[in-house]
Computed example of a mutant assay.
Amino acid sequence: MSATILTVDDSASIRLTTRVALTNAGYQVTEAVDGLDGLAKLDGGQFDLIITDLNMPNMDGLTMIRELRKLPAHMGVPVVFLTTESDAEIKQQAKSAGATGWLTKPFDPESLVKIVRKVLGR
């Protein structure tokens, strides 16, 4: 069975690029448009990995991670940040919130798949 991945990004083009790269690599992808939508989708399902943007309307990625880490069913789910931010302080905040990895936009789809495989161990 392939891994299930939740992608959370307010950019339709990033969601499309991410979905195509991951589905072509054999993963099942569910999309959310912001942190609130991401949490709502988490409420209805189990995911092996979450990929989230940082800067989004309604709820940013850091807040979403902090909220999902409070949910027992999702405490151990790995989270990869996919963002334009590269500031060391932001990276530290993400790590403290519970992020597992980081990929800076713009990204190469092969790099995304490589990170996903590494984080999932498959």
Results as ranks from 00 to 15, higher is better:
Met1Trp: 03
Met1Leu: 12
Ser2Tyr: 01
Ser2Glu: 02
Ser2Gln: 05
Ala3Cys: 09
Thr4Gln: 14
Thr7Cys: 13
Thr7Lys: 09
Val8Ile: 15
Val8Lys: 00
Val8His: 02
Asp9Pro: 03
Asp10Leu: 02
Ser11Trp: 01
Ser11Glu: 08
Ala12Leu: 05
Ser13Leu: 12
Ser13Pro: 04
Ile14Ser: 11
Arg15Glu: 05
Arg15Leu: 15
Leu16Asn: 12
Leu16Met: 14
Leu16Asp: 14
Leu16Tyr: 11
Thr17Tyr: 00
Thr17Cys: 07
Thr18Phe: 03
Thr18Lys: 02
Thr18Ser: 13
Arg19Ala: 06
Val20Asn: 05
Ala21Asp: 00
Leu22Ala: 10
Leu22Arg: 03
Leu22Thr: 11
Thr23His: 03
Asn24Asp: 15
Asn24Lys: 13
Ala25Ile: 05
Tyr27Asp: 00
Val29Cys: 04
Val29Ile: 10
Val29Met: 07
Val29Arg: 06
Thr30Trp: 07
Glu31Ala: 15
Glu31Met: 11
Ala32Met: 12
Asp34Gly: 00
Gly35Met: 01
Gly35Pro: 01
Leu36Arg: 14
Asp37Arg: 04
Gly38Asp: 02
Gly38Asn: 09
Gly38Thr: 02
Leu39Met: 14
Ala40Ser: 14
Lys41Arg: 15
Leu42Ser: 08
Gly44Lys: 14
Gly44Ala: 01
Gly44Ile: 09
Gly44Pro: 01
Phe47Pro: 07
Phe47Arg: 10
Asp48Met: 04
Asp48Val: 06
Leu49Gln: 05
Leu49Gly: 06
Ile50Arg: 01
Asp53Thr: 03
Asp53Glu: 04
Asp53Asn: 08
Met56His: 05
Pro57Asp: 00
Pro57Ala: 12
Asn58Lys: 15
Met59Gln: 08
Asp60Glu: 04
Gly61His: 02
Gly61Lys: 02
Leu62Arg: 07
Met64Trp: 03
Arg66His: 08
Glu67Pro: 03
Glu67Ile: 02
Glu67Cys: 02
Leu68Cys: 10
Arg69Cys: 04
Lys70Trp: 00
Leu71His: 11
Leu71Ser: 08
Leu71Phe: 01
Ala73Val: 03
Ala73Arg: 13
Ala73Gly: 07
Met75Ile: 14
Val77Met: 12
Pro78His: 06
Pro78Glu: 05
Pro78Ala: 01
Val79Gln: 05
Val80Arg: 10
Val80Leu: 15
Phe81Met: 15
Thr83Lys: 09
Thr84Asn: 13
Glu85Cys: 03
Glu85Asn: 10
Ala88Lys: 07
Glu89Tyr: 07
Glu89Lys: 13
Ile90Thr: 15
Lys91Glu: 12
Lys91Val: 10
Gln92Glu: 15
Gln93Ser: 10
Gln93Leu: 14
Gln93Thr: 11
Ala94Arg: 13
Ala94Asn: 10
Ser96Phe: 07
Ser96Arg: 12
Ala97Val: 08
Gly101Pro: 02
Trp102Asp: 00
Leu103Ile: 15
Thr104Ser: 10
Thr104Phe: 05
Lys105Tyr: 08
Pro106His: 09
Phe107Val: 13
Asp108Pro: 02
Asp108Phe: 01
Asp108Thr: 11
Pro109Phe: 04
Glu110Gly: 07
Glu110Tyr: 09
Glu110Asn: 14
Leu112Asp: 06
Val113Ile: 04
Arg117Asp: 13
Lys118Asn: 06
Val119Phe: 09
Val119Met: 06
Gly121Tyr: 09
Arg122Met: 01
